[in-house]
Design a protein around this nucleic acid. Sequence first.
DNA 1: GTGTATTATCTCAGTAGTAAGATGTTTAAT
DNA 2: ATTAAACATCTTACTACTGAGATAATACAC
Lengths: 166, 166
Amino acid sequence: MTTTLTAPPAPRRKAPDTATAAALKLFIVLARAQRAITERTEANLVPHGLSGTEFAILEALYHKGPLLLGDVQRKILVSSGGITFLVDKLADRGLVERKLCPTDRRARYAALTRKGEALIAEVFPGHAEVIRVAMAGLSRAEQKEATALLKTLGLAAAGGENAGTR
Amino acid sequence: MTTTLTAPPAPRRKAPDTATAAALKLFIVLARAQRAITERTEANLVPHGLSGTEFAILEALYHKGPLLLGDVQRKILVSSGGITFLVDKLADRGLVERKLCPTDRRARYAALTRKGEALIAEVFPGHAEVIRVAMAGLSRAEQKEATALLKTLGLAAAGGENAGTR
DNA sequence: GTGTATTATCTCAGTAGTAAGATGTTTAAT
DNA sequence: ATTAAACATCTTACTACTGAGATAATACAC
């Protein structure tokens, strides 16, 4: 049922304590900054017919050589079903191929084909440049500062399950 | 075709210049930190049967009162089809309802039902607390520092289309 | 060696979104 | 009034995943 709006808008609720308020503010700017950056990088990949995730796979293989599917999965953080799907797609396009692992017949390597290597070699420098430009709102010193803070934050948030109270 | 891996892994390519290297590093820690945090917040929402996006809608309505669908869309950053889909789902569960706009018959408001308001009032404090704990790897001063840097970064990346070179 | 737990990938069904275009509405210029 | 442009939302078809379970191989304890 769709009625017409009549009552005045609800008033704001009571504010959280200052520690929580600071954390919430950081939460928001973190999300927005990350979104703004990835929007740029992904837009840059569209002309090459790659999504951000696909690019991440090619890049991992480019910089590390052939990797077990599970290693790729852990590196780019998708589900097991997802890595199968993504590598299938890249293989269909001739960018990547599966190789048997000589010592473990359960496992498969993903490796760049010559075509895949050529593509990533062409795309990567532009990608890095887009990131450099996107980050240029901060000076180099500020970038280092931000990197240090975010590294600490990320490790604490990922690892220390029970930080804070508890 | 799936062959067996024989050749040694490919060696690393030439490193980018230092400005680009700093930006790339920041890109990575930013993505990882954001992921670690949202993993925590979303896990906290699961028991309440809410996704992060659904929560974001309820929270926006909770703190701002009824909003036009387009305003919600811009606030939580989904497509127009997405907002229809999401509000449909929340409406089916009786948490939100659509209201006609008295002055513009194209537009619809989304507003919390009593049930939706009760849910978000119950969930929000815990959500804020999870964020406070997740951010506790940084001191309050560091959080403020990080917030300032990320705000600058986000605004520059979102707005200044042509920063850097060009 | 056998059995059990673990690991690696794949399959399948379902979900959350996007993008493009359709529908109906308002605004403004004629 | 009539038309055109700009809007706000919804519909439809599609994509990119996730998660649970299937399959198969390995490792480890006995």
